[in-house]
Design a binder for these strands. Structure first.
Lengths: 145, 145
DNA sequence: ATAATATTAATAATCATTCCTAATATCAAT
DNA sequence: ATTGATATTAGGAATGATTATTAATATTAT
């Protein structure tokens, strides 16, 4: 019935992938759009969104669903964790190995079929740590966390 | 100096809190709005959003930033983890104790100031597990046809 | 009672994302 | 190369969740 869809590696798709691979950050679709526009000024935002989804389906990148309102994209499709700055939203990789045994602890304890987990660390990036310290609100924020 | 704001426990605020405490699920702002409207038909959606934020600031409830597009609210302000159904979005508590030592593993390994983490399990609720099983067996049947 | 502040309902505005459509590009098979 | 089928595109409209605005009302402190 459903014959396999042939994928084309269009210029737009390739450019999006290349740009994502070049940046070491974890940009949002809109940030990627702005970067790609420098090379392809006529590309549309919808094309960026659509191709990011295609690249995810192809297993070449991954979509990050972290806290906050926006989704980010990661050139690295392998499972790993992230740290997010609560002040500026910046995202970095978390230097900790995946916890592969976590699901086992839930086995038999929940009616859900568990197939994975997401772990996200929250904190402040160096810049925002300084800013917050100067405002001397960091201590309060941590206490209230 | 920021003088402390006096909080009023208005009927709207109290009703929102009570309804959230009565439901054992993890409703979205909109779902709470629909429930509260049965008691206070003239309440506005904005009032629900504003009061949910106030209740979070008061430490009486917590806001959940899970995967997907919507935010959910939890009558239980204490730290705990959740399971989310990838099919229908339903959320349940995860029967696993908080991992209090996790942050220690990052100490010295990142330039971020880590102050916490969020852990979310992904899977399928019982209903959707059934549906997915039927779908995949159907798919297999078609493919093997 | 008066003044200051908190809260509300209603609505508009915003933001990220998805959807729609007609035009264009590419591929497979003549 | 031509045709037909399908994938992809640009542009813009639509959606959905959330936030902001505003004028009216309610509560609190003096």
């Amino acid at each position: 019935m459903p014959e396999k869809k042939t994928r084309r590696m269009t210029l737009q798709r390739k450019t999006i992938l290349d740009i994502l691979r070049q940046t070491k950050s974890h940009p949002s679709a809109d940030e990627i759009y702005e970067l790609v526009r420098k090379q392809l000024p006529r590309i549309s935002l919808g094309t960026v969104y659509r191709n990011l989804e295609v690249l995810v389906k192809m297993g070449l990148i991954q979509k990050l669903e972290l806290g906050g309102t926006i989704k980010r994209f990661d050139w690295n499709p392998n499972k790993h964790y992230h740290i997010r700055c609560l002040c500026c939203g910046q995202v970095d990789d978390a230097p900790i190995a995946p916890l592969n045994k976590l699901e086992d602890e839930l086995y038999g304890a929940t009616v859900f079929s568990i197939i994975g987990h997401r772990l996200e660390f929250e904190g402040f990036c160096p810049d925002c740590t300084k800013k917050e310290a100067e405002k001397s609100t960091l201590k309060t924020k941590i206490e209230n966390f």
